[in-house]
Design a protein around this nucleic acid. Structure first.
Lengths: 219, 219
DNA sequence: CTACTATTCAAATAGTCACTTGAGTGATAT
DNA sequence: ATATCACTCAAGTGACTATTTGAATAGTAG
């Protein structure tokens, strides 16, 4: 006698959730969302050993969250579906809504202040047309190089001290980074606001911008 | 030195996903979505022991997916948020899209045929006003008693053989059950269609209908 | 207070998971 | 063929998870 279809279905749904239940795999997904990549690059970016990253990637593939193809010697992983991104984001929303610990961490990133409202992608797109806003891409240069929002300037957190004084005091700045789990943009906004600049975070990051069907630039 | 805020955040997101990574907890969530309940009732419905159910429920609460309150001797659990329901559903969608195994199981429920398109809740609401449709609530009687779609008739799978001959051959039937993970409605639709009746599944189940802000009836 | 009910906690078990190490495989270059 | 590169597989370890059992706690009724 086989197990009930109901139990089999729940087992499959649980498999999807389990794939998202390890921080290492969430990191990998965040990286893959920046653009497809090979195992070694992903392992580097996430600080995992290659064998370990490979195994996590296979777990993600079994759960249908990523897909892979062989390209010469490399195996390139990519998100299988925009829904993977939506799922990651919904988990974030649920966690932010319901877990006090998350609120505490986010508050810490803003140095105790309430984080200012984030800028929607629609709003940023409108401002871009007007040219009334400065965009900071706060990701590492190699990720910026792969693809970024047109007109964005690549600024790492370490650069901020140097760059802040060169900015007109009233100018509006929008910072973005990797996506749902990005932390850099919070930190950049906090640092800029401490200097009296009018900085805000973009809602989501580059993957969401791209997913909206908006234009991106490669260097 | 404390761990990085980034790692702490990912840990929290992983906690939410981990809560959804066990079939037992998905069953509990499905039950709680029908309406708030005590531990014993939930344990009964899911076939878990009371101590085990209690521990799973606490895991769900730690992840912020459910909330609880004490009512006399009982502790009543409820969904903390409509987003919990959205999250469960998105997991189902991702699994259905990307996992061949899930498609196979669903096909099995429809006896190898493609499942007919499901009826949207909007469509059903419109038909309800016209009175041009028969609604079957395929959940167990006690869940039907707690709350159901107005005008629905409570029909268990075992009843179908008896009831099918009494239905007018052309009449449209819409079946629904618990929600995202419901299996009964598939089976009911399959059984009715085999008899030449024009049956379809409702998209989602009672919790989604209620979440839309539509009317529900208690017996 | 005592008995009782509903739930939680604690400890023990078997099972699964994450990560490391080292060997194995597939594709390309020499 | 041989070597190299990029990745995967297999096996082992320590840590966590699911489940059971029995004891402990919170609330109610007598």
């Amino acid at each position: 006698m086989s197990i009930s279809p109901k139990a089999a279905l729940l087992e499959e749904y649980a498999l999807v959730a389990r794939a998202l239940s390890a921080p290492a795999r969430l990191m990998l997904l965040e990286q893959i969302a920046q653009g497809e990549r090979g195992v070694e690059a992903l392992a580097d970016k996430t600080g995992l050993t290659i064998a370990n990253a490979s195994q996590h990637l296979q777990a993600l593939r079994r759960a249908g969250l990523v897909a892979s193809r062989r390209d010469g010697k490399s195996v390139i992983y990519r998100l299988s579906d925009a829904r993977t991104l939506a799922l990651m984001d919904l988990i974030r929303v649920v966690a932010e809504r319901n877990l006090a610990q998350v609120e505490r961490i986010l508050r810490g990133l803003s140095d105790g202040a309430d984080a200012p409202e984030s800028v929607t992608r629609d709003e940023l797109a409108a401002r871009l047309v007007e040219g009334s806003v400065t965009i900071f891409d706060v990701r590492p240069p190699d990720e910026f190089a792969m693809s970024h929002i047109p007109g964005a300037r690549n600024v790492t957190l370490a650069d901020l001290d140097r760059i802040a004084p060169t900015l007109a005091p009233g100018s509006e700045i929008v910072a973005y980074c990797r996506g749902p789990y990005c932390v850099y943009a919070y930190q950049a906004v906090t640092a800029l606001r401490k200097r009296g600049l009018n900085a805000r975070r973009l809602e989501g990051g580059l993957p969401e911008w791209r997913e909206d069907g908006r234009q991106v630039t490669a260097l």
